[in-house]
């Protein structure tokens, strides 16, 4: 078996194990979705039920909910493996460290997507999103969600490894995570808002730079992750 094939197999193994763990512990998935629902209910009361109908607030609220969901997910990224001793087992073998990281990132992207799809329905209902907005968002939203998940998932996976041995992990994760992913959040909100036909954009506002940020951040952090994977995953 070639090195590339072995790498792919290892990556798939980590991904499959993570998916199976979630499937066995459905409460974790349902709990995250319930958390997202609580936030979706909370925001209209925080901003005011009338103000939340405004296009800018509506989009901002959706991505802010996603943000908290990602933070919750990445904070628990290696919990199952650590509790079961599987991570130590992986690390004691010849499994390529970057394959573990990629497997985990792939898992985060799909896991978040599985939360975001029902969340999207809640958002449409609770925030009275008009049909024409949904139509115009249609082609943008899915790539936006995937890139958002990829970016935040990559940063989250990196930070989950960095803070693994810290005694103040619960403080450090948000302290590092929120500033580092701010450009992705900003880009996602801006691109979603630009797609909304109800908003008149100011002259000179281009969505190209936001797409660059959406694409560039995951690439940048993936590169850092691969280069440092041996340091990130130490026994």
């Amino acid at each position: 078996m070639s090195a590339a094939q072995l790498w792919r197999r290892n990556c798939w193994l980590v991904f499959e194990y993570s998916v199976r763990s979630v499937f066995l512990r459905k409460a974790s998935w349902a709990g995250t979705l319930a958390f997202a629902a609580c936030l979706a209910i909370l925001f209209p009361f925080a901003f005011g039920t009338e103000l939340i109908q405004k296009a800018e607030i509506r989009h901002g609220a959706f991505w802010a909910i996603n943000e908290f969901v990602v933070a919750l997910t990445v904070a628990r990224l290696f919990t199952v493996e650590t509790e079961g001793g599987i991570l130590e087992y992986f690390l004691s073998t010849q499994v390529n460290r970057s394959a573990i990281l990629f497997g985990k990132i792939l898992f985060v992207v799909l896991y978040l997507l599985s939360i975001q799809l029902p969340l999207l329905l809640m958002w449409i209902v609770f925030y009275n999103v008009p049909g024409n907005v949904l139509l115009s968002l249609g082609s943008t939203l899915l790539p936006l969600l995937v890139l958002f998940n990829l970016g935040t998932g990559t940063i989250g996976a990196l930070l989950a490894c960095v803070t693994a041995r810290s005694t103040a992990r619960d403080i450090l994760m948000p302290l590092l995570f929120y500033p580092l992913q701010m450009s992705i959040l900003l880009a996602a909100v801006s691109l979603a808002t630009m797609s909304d036909p109800g908003i008149v954009m100011l002259a000179g506002t281009s969505n190209e730079s936001w797409w660059t940020a959406m694409l560039g951040v995951p690439v940048l952090f993936l590169a850092v992750g691969v280069l440092l994977s041996n340091v990130l995953f130490q026994e």
Partner: peptide, 30 residues
Amino acid sequence: FLICCAYHVLRSFTPDVQARRNAGQIVAIL
């Protein structure tokens, strides 16, 4: 600036010296 602050928090709350050095170096790169 916040990432720099996080670096200090990370160093303060990671008791294992080797882990602290590794994590600190990664945050500095980030």
